[in-house]
Design a protein around this nucleic acid. Structure first.
Lengths: 345, 345
DNA sequence: TTGTAGGCGTTATCAT
DNA sequence: ATGATAACGCCTACAA
């Protein structure tokens, strides 16, 4: 089915060429103390000339360490990953680990396959973003002696997340304080824990301000441009569209804004919109997006640090929750006095 | 420096538990013909219960095949990769290969490190996007007995690319036909081959229409939002800003549009803008972007097919160049009659 | 149908 | 300072 790789030069080849034993070559390449400087140099030079590249599979067999981190991502160009992956990679690199990414496409089965594939390759540990399995790893962990850290899945003991509920609350507070009362929420897939937390934040603020929670104002989305646009269509089709929308993430928000503008339901003139994530793009959209910033670089860095601890067998590890921060730009504005049914504050 | 992985259950453990020899277990797990159905089932059940996951490093040592493709990407959330990676993965998957991504951050040294890291892990082959090394792989290929396919680097024998020059020509033709004569180009890093090809297309069209090529109209960019915005600032600062801009890619185009709009230099009213790539986002920007579509899924699929051939040792492989296609949306419009200095077409 | 033995490329533990 | 030997987990002739 698959094909063989062309032969690489091995330590034995070098040994033969140098007229020494394989173990001497191994030691020379590792600059072991107790090898004559002369033969050491000679062998390293030879290795260089012969184009030797060590075989990690072979080495890891004996050292029982691949120095490899697997990272499950939703898909290669998910904009949310931009800073998060950098956080993971920088931390991993500084500790001598390489990290490899593989996509789950938000599919639970694919996610399991990827995890399995990392385990088969004996990765030292795995970080999962956008997990569909979530706390389900608690059961799987019996099967896989493989440390796993999740992001944005509080509830799983080894995870680092944004404070989603508090972030959502800031967003909705901002809208309420601007005088909005018909505030919609565009969700992610319902099952997602992150979605439930943000939805809870949304509901909490409405209740706190004695604004009735209208289920028609909670729209089904999926965190994509297209999903946002679809939700917007639904809102536009309703007899009484909202004057503000809080979206699960920035991509959905952009989808919403796009569809609203197309229908001449102007943002922010007719309707305010708030996103979540603060992608780099958010500041470049028109209008620039009001959104809730996730500390994604920091999430990545800390997830990797946590994974390192687990790999070292330490158990003094606990869930971390990082604060979110509202970034007010230009997709939100107060409800015009004329349009208010009640007094604003 | 790095830590050991917890022990996994091996074929020997199963053999001991089942009271058979390791080779019997190996055969049972592979459903070899010539193993009694009874012991086969018994062993497979046992393996399942004991949570056995085969060690690919160990297996690959003897089979000399890791069934692994390495893919070098610029960075995790590069939007251009969206469809390309899917093309690669689908093709790889159907042939039994797993693909892992690793980032180069457009840095030549990092790119080499990643390639080396894939080779150390004995990947079957590698696909590189956004290569900084490009045709330099011709020399490196002596050192690495590792098949390498590049994307968007015609000139390297094993590559699949978009017809960048023809794509650029379509874009600029479109602008010229709309009556524009002061047309700027926002570049990528100068060194990039792709950039040179698109620049050549730009120049060719201007010359063809006897429009003088003004070097002040070729702006230094880097294919990012920020780079696009910087280039826009420069244009705005000039005594005679262009009436149209062709950008190396969509992200740069969005950066340009954003900065123009901020300065009240409206797109497309005051200035037309064309991008390159046709990201999903392009259709969702405001205004929706006129751009040149790259067949990126197809690039990925074909790159993987080419790599497969190389892995199989076939040498009937040649560079492929795929057509680009102009997608006219709403960031371009004809120069208003009043503003023209010469007659339009 | 099953077991034995050798080897993949590397490192580590003994000797020498 | 260097060499021989065993072992990592797996596969595959070859024997039985």
């Amino acid at each position: 089915m698959t094909g063989k790789v062309r032969a690489s030069v091995s330590i034995k080849d070098i040994a033969r060429a140098a007229g020494v034993s394989p173990s001497t070559v191994s030691r020379a390449l590792h600059s072991h103390p107790g090898i004559s400087a002369e033969t050491g140099d000679r062998i390293r030079l030879l290795a260089e000339e012969m184009g030797y590249t060590p075989s990690l599979p072979a080495r890891s067999l004996v050292t029982r360490d691949t120095a490899t981190i697997g990272m499950v991502i939703t898909h290669a160009s998910d904009p949310f990953l931009a800073r998060l992956v950098v956080g993971v990679e920088e931390c991993a690199r500084s500790e001598g680990y390489a990290v490899f990414l593989s996509s789950s496409y938000r599919d639970a089965e694919r996610e399991q396959e990827v995890i399995r594939s990392f385990h088969e390759r004996r990765a030292s540990g795995v970080i999962v973003t956008g997990s569909q399995i979530g706390t389900g790893y608690l059961e799987l962990s019996q099967r896989f002696p493989l440390p796993i850290v999740l992001t944005n899945c509080s509830g799983y003991p080894y995870s680092v997340s944004t404070d989603n509920q508090a972030g959502a609350q800031q967003a909705v507070e901002h809208l309420v304080h601007s005088g909005h009362r018909r505030i919609a929420y565009v969700s992610n897939q319902r099952s997602s824990r992150t979605n439930r937390e943000r939805l809870a934040g949304y509901r909490a603020v409405l209740q706190e301000h004695a604004i009735p929670v209208d289920d028609d104002l909670v729209l089904e989305g999926d965190g994509t441009l297209e999903g946002g646009a679809r939700a917007a269509q639904q809102m536009l089709a309703s007899s009484q569209p909202p004057t503000a929308v809080f979206c699960f993430n920035d991509m959905a928000a952009i989808g919403v804004i796009h569809a609203f503008n197309r229908a001449d339901y102007r943002v922010p003139h007719c309707c305010s919109v708030v996103g979540f994530d603060d992608l780099e793009l958010a500041g470049y959209y028109c209008p620039p997006l009001t959104t809730v910033r996730q500390p994604s670089y920091e999430i990545g860095r800390r997830a990797m640090r946590m994974l390192l601890k687990l790999i070292q067998g330490r158990e003094d590890v606990q869930t971390e929750i990082l604060p979110a921060e509202l970034v007010v730009r230009e997709t939100t504005r107060p409800v015009p006095r004329s349009a208010r049914k009640e007094k604003g504050r």
